[in-house]
């Protein structure tokens, strides 16, 4: 990132960070609904891991001016969103679809976990058990539906179906990441505040109420918004690449004409000589 490239990179990352903070703030008052995951996912997928990590770090730190400075949350965000950016940045950089087995395996594992939780029963307050069970069954239904959709698209074949399968695979990976976010919080927060084992277990179970709606939201938002967002970001990235291409061509043309990198002034001296 040198010269104009660096300025463009800083501007791109700044705009994306502002967008993420705005998206989080706008939906912060709706419990269980968040679109930061799909925005960051599409951005990292198009712009790559390097830009993704810069945005993830800036977002994790700057959002504190809106939501407050809580050390455990800052550490959680820095670890999670940087790992998230690396994962989806590297996936996007591969320029080939996610392996066919990834989506079915992830969805089957997550759906089995939901079904087990709903059948065994999670020891939360007796007043919350029915709601938690409904949430688990709802997530199970969404994951099973996504798996059925993936298999149907796989059977249909073709480029469009391939795009749908890719979105389904990324939705499954994003769902896993959302679950990991809550699990990471279940470790970091009790450690940071020195919870007793019982309190940590209670915190873990209470975390299900945040995790389940967010996971459902992640699956649906990635499934629906990944391609439109990817298109928008790809257009922005193409603008960046077009600019680089124009500069490269101009440099090559100057070389062909035998001009040096430092353009001559009217009296034959280069800018370097003048300086």
């Amino acid at each position: 990132m040198k010269g104009k490239g660096a300025a463009h990179a800083i501007a791109t990352c700044a705009v994306m960070t502002a967008l993420l903070i705005a998206v989080q703030y706008a939906l912060g008052f709706v419990p269980g609904v968040e679109l930061v995951t799909v925005f960051l996912l599409a951005f990292c997928y198009v712009f790559g891991a390097k830009y993704g990590v810069i945005v993830a770090t800036a977002f994790s730190l700057l959002r504190c001016f809106v939501w407050g400075f809580y050390p455990n949350i800052i550490v959680l965000y820095l670890i999670y969103f940087n790992a998230f950016a690396l994962l989806f940045g590297l996936l996007g950089g591969r320029e080939r679809p996610v392996a066919v087995w990834v989506c079915p395996v992830l969805l089957a594992l997550l759906a089995a976990g939901c079904m087990a939780g709903a059948l065994i029963g999670i020891p939360v307050s007796v007043l919350y058990r029915a709601r938690l069970s409904a949430m688990l069954w709802a997530l199970f239904g969404v994951l099973a539906g996504l798996l059925a959709l993936y298999i149907a698209l796989w059977a249909v074949g073709g480029r469009r179906a391939g795009q749908g399968r890719e979105a389904a695979s990324l939705a499954a990976l994003a769902a896993l990441c959302t679950v990991c976010f809550t699990l990471l919080d279940d470790v970091l927060t009790p450690l940071f505040y020195g919870y007793s084992f019982d309190a940590a277990v209670a915190y873990f179970y209470a975390g299900f109420f945040a995790m389940l709606p967010q996971t459902i939201c992640t699956v649906l938002s990635v499934l629906l918004l990944f391609y439109p967002l990817r298109k928008v970001f790809a257009q922005a990235a193409a603008g960046k690449r077009r600019g680089e291409r124009v500069r490269r061509r101009a440099r090559a043309a100057r070389k062909r004409r035998g001009e040096s990198e430092n353009a001559s002034s009217n009296d034959g001296r280069t800018q370097k000589d003048v300086v």
């Binding site: 539906g145 959709l149 698209l153 469009r160 179906a161 795009q163 749908g164 979105a167 649906l220 499934l223 629906l224 391609y227």
Partner: peptide
């Protein structure tokens, strides 16, 4: 067509 299917499913 696939996008419509995805939207309907979601």
């Amino acid at each position: 067509k696939h996008f419509r299917t995805l939207f309907a499913a979601a």
